[in-house]
């Protein structure tokens, strides 16, 4: 039951993009086509799950026992940056088709605050365990994917719309994101 609640909370109620404002850069940056947004979502799912797994272990078994919690920010960002690099190298060697699909998005992920933010949030989970943290990361990536893909579909339609000159580009995208966020607000109180 706990796990179902985590999933619903992360995908709908506290959506990582639309209500926590993490990962806004890729949300606005790579959402002009549905196909690229699917690729980006896949890459985020992959990296976020791995990153949370590793950072949770480091926090629990290295930082806490040695009283170095204040090094959390530095160590997490280092881990994420090197992890992304490693994933890139391994994917290139092991699975070229997957690399082709995710490759361009991987370098962008280091500065995706959803990954670092998700890893930090996972530490604060109630009754936290490694399994819960990883499940939380997967739920957050699903929430990210949902927001990104819905937003990209709307933007594809927007290209055909007649928009006032001053609203073109960024403002209309922000406005659409606002309305989308408003829709997700309807889920508040669900959990």
């Amino acid at each position: 039951m706990d796990y179902i609640l985590i999933l619903i909370a992360a995908v709908f109620v506290n959506n990582i993009v639309l209500s926590q404002f993490l990962g806004i850069c890729p949300f606005l940056g790579v959402s002009n086509k549905v196909s690229t947004s699917i690729g980006m979502s896949g890459a985020v799912l992959f990296v976020m799950t791995l990153a949370t797994l590793v950072t949770y272990l480091i926090h629990q078994f290295v930082l806490v026992p040695s009283g170095l919690e204040y090094l959390r920010t530095i160590s997490f960002i280092l881990v994420i940056a090197s992890l992304v690099q490693m994933v890139e190298i391994i994917l290139k060697k092991v699975s070229p088709p997957l690399y082709q699909a995710l490759g361009v998005f991987l370098p962008l992920i280091t500065t995706n605050c959803a990954v670092l933010g998700g890893a930090i949030l996972a530490l604060g989970l109630e009754g936290g365990s490694l399994l819960k943290a990883v499940f939380f990361a997967i739920s957050n990536s699903i929430g990210f994917a949902l927001a990104l893909i819905v937003f990209a579909s709307i933007r594809e339609q927007l290209e055909l719309a007649n928009i006032p000159k001053a609203m073109q580009g960024v403002p209309i995208n922000l406005l659409v994101a606002g309305l989308l966020s408003l829709a997700f607000l309807g889920f508040a109180g669900l959990v």
């Binding site: 404002f21 403002p171 209309i172 922000l174 406005l175 606002g178 966020s181």
Partner: peptide, 21 residues
């Protein structure tokens, strides 16, 4: 609404329009 998350997007959208104008 403007204190809630959607308000952030909407307020920034209109401020950007104003700034550009």
């Amino acid at each position: 609404l403007f204190i809630l998350p959607p308000g952030a997007f909407i307020a920034l959208a209109y401020l950007t329009v104003l700034f550009n104008k």
